Amino acid sequence: MAMTAQSLQSLLVQEPSVVWTDVFSDVWERMSQPVSGDVASEMVRRDKDIEGLDLVLSSAAWDLWPHFEACAPKTSKALQDFWSASPGSKAVLVLDALSLREAPWILQEAAKRGFKVHGGRATGSALPSDTTSFAKELGMSQRSLLTSGQVGSLKLAGAATALFTQPWLECANTLPNHPDLFVWHDWPDSLMHDLSGPGPGLRQLAEDAKTVLTGDDFWTFVERLATGRRLIITADHGYAASGQFSDVLDQEQKEYFQKTFGAERFASSADKAQSHWLPPVDLPLTTARGDYRFALGRRAWSVQGGRKNLSHGGISLLEVAVPFIELSRAL
């Protein structure tokens, strides 16, 4: 049974690690179910379904966020645990900005195409929920280091590395010849940024993502990675369908967001003072990457040129929770 906002509130007397574990388990259960019917409408519905949890986490339970990095089930730690516990050949595929919305297609198609699904769950991004934060958690100063073919500081020892932006079949044909692989592709982040301006936003992204994740080219690439290896498919961060967030109506708050964040949902800031509103409208957090302020909850505001329909970097659930799926394919 799905966790409700009320049942989440009843958990607040427990330790933050327990609450974050339960929240991530619940969000995975909701978002990973098979998709039927109109894809765009279903993704909008599922996004709306998470709204109640985001509301509690930005109001009664906002003080859970300072515990997020220490207590949520982190993707970077899950990858390191997988790497050290897997004695045979192994691979990791990071799909940039893959969110829990896209997990059902991977699970459904893997089973159809003869892959063995060993497990799936939700794990957490670094903060801010962007590419560089995740790269740093894995021992790299930036993602571009992966183009060297091997990164000595990478916390997945001995992995051959690749960073791809090309079509899937080209990627499949240019994988490093090595038993252990760490591969990063810039899809769907590249698509998300293309659709971030005015327009259909989440609806178009949902349809385009389904086309890719049910297509032969993508699965040829996955087959090359998974054959003879245990493969993890995961992401550095998710994304927010910020075009569906409610507008900030209070003029003072709107001006505060515009001045503090511009068009983004986080900002580097050494100012650790709480805003004077209660519950707060944003949070100062000291993260592993430094001091930042984060817009709290599903709030939206306009800036010159409009506002983003799709975005990431913030602390809504579908920005910070990503799929962590383990597959294999027999030789």
Rank of each mutant, 00 (worst) to 15 (best):
residue 140 M to Y: 13
residue 122 A to C: 11
residue 129 S to V: 01
residue 299 R to G: 01
residue 309 N to E: 15
residue 35 V to S: 07
residue 151 V to T: 07
residue 77 K to L: 08
residue 268 S to T: 06
residue 180 D to N: 15
residue 331 L to C: 11
residue 253 Q to G: 08
residue 130 D to C: 06
residue 11 L to A: 11
residue 104 P to A: 04
residue 19 V to A: 00
residue 98 L to W: 06
residue 48 K to Q: 15
residue 149 G to E: 13
residue 98 L to D: 13
residue 224 R to Q: 15
residue 105 W to I: 08
residue 96 D to L: 06
residue 265 R to K: 12
residue 42 E to L: 02
residue 102 E to P: 00
residue 189 D to M: 11
residue 24 F to Y: 15
residue 52 G to I: 10
residue 37 G to N: 08
residue 253 Q to I: 00
residue 240 A to M: 11
residue 68 F to P: 02
residue 251 Q to P: 00
residue 28 W to P: 07
residue 89 S to C: 06
residue 85 A to P: 01
residue 156 L to P: 04
residue 112 K to M: 03
residue 195 L to R: 09
residue 126 A to L: 06
residue 301 W to L: 02
residue 259 K to S: 12
residue 236 D to A: 10
residue 80 Q to Y: 09
residue 292 Y to E: 12
residue 237 H to P: 04
residue 327 L to A: 09
residue 292 Y to T: 10
residue 295 A to T: 13
residue 309 N to P: 01
residue 6 Q to W: 01
residue 308 K to V: 02
residue 238 G to C: 04
residue 119 G to Q: 04
residue 110 A to R: 03
residue 287 T to N: 03
residue 117 V to T: 13
residue 95 L to P: 01
residue 74 K to M: 11
residue 32 S to K: 06
residue 48 K to N: 13
residue 236 D to E: 12
residue 1 M to N: 10
residue 241 A to L: 01
residue 92 V to I: 09
residue 222 V to A: 14
residue 135 A to S: 15
residue 260 T to R: 07
residue 182 F to T: 14
residue 75 T to Y: 04
residue 304 Q to G: 04
residue 148 S to F: 00
residue 179 P to L: 03
residue 246 S to Q: 13
residue 202 L to T: 07
residue 156 L to K: 02
residue 214 T to R: 09
residue 42 E to R: 13
residue 64 L to H: 10
residue 323 P to H: 12
residue 231 L to A: 06
residue 19 V to T: 12
residue 206 A to F: 08
residue 183 V to E: 10
residue 177 N to H: 07
residue 8 L to A: 07
residue 218 F to R: 02
residue 63 D to G: 01
residue 114 G to W: 08
residue 278 L to Q: 15
residue 323 P to F: 13
residue 270 A to S: 14
residue 60 A to R: 05
residue 137 E to S: 11
residue 43 M to F: 15
residue 12 L to E: 13
residue 129 S to K: 04
residue 227 T to C: 07
residue 21 T to F: 00
residue 71 C to S: 11
residue 313 G to Y: 09
residue 16 P to I: 02
residue 158 G to R: 08
residue 211 T to L: 08
residue 104 P to T: 02
residue 116 K to Q: 13
residue 69 E to F: 03
residue 53 L to A: 09
residue 119 G to F: 00
residue 74 K to R: 14
residue 61 A to N: 10
residue 60 A to Q: 15
residue 184 W to V: 02
residue 41 S to K: 06
residue 109 E to A: 14
residue 268 S to W: 05
residue 306 G to S: 14
residue 43 M to A: 11
residue 135 A to E: 05
residue 257 F to T: 00
residue 73 P to Y: 00
residue 30 R to T: 13
residue 252 E to R: 12
residue 178 H to L: 09
residue 169 L to V: 14
residue 183 V to D: 03
residue 128 P to H: 05
residue 178 H to M: 07
residue 323 P to G: 03
residue 39 V to I: 15
residue 150 Q to N: 09
residue 81 D to P: 02
residue 48 K to A: 15
residue 300 A to V: 03
residue 30 R to N: 05
residue 73 P to C: 01
residue 268 S to Q: 14
residue 74 K to E: 11
residue 248 V to Y: 05
residue 175 L to P: 05
residue 281 V to D: 02
residue 149 G to C: 06
residue 123 T to G: 01
residue 28 W to K: 05
residue 195 L to G: 06
residue 170 E to H: 10
residue 184 W to A: 07
residue 71 C to N: 12
residue 277 W to L: 03
residue 274 Q to K: 12
residue 146 L to K: 06
residue 249 L to A: 11
residue 80 Q to K: 12
residue 67 H to T: 14
residue 121 R to Y: 04
residue 113 R to M: 05
residue 55 L to M: 08
residue 303 V to S: 02
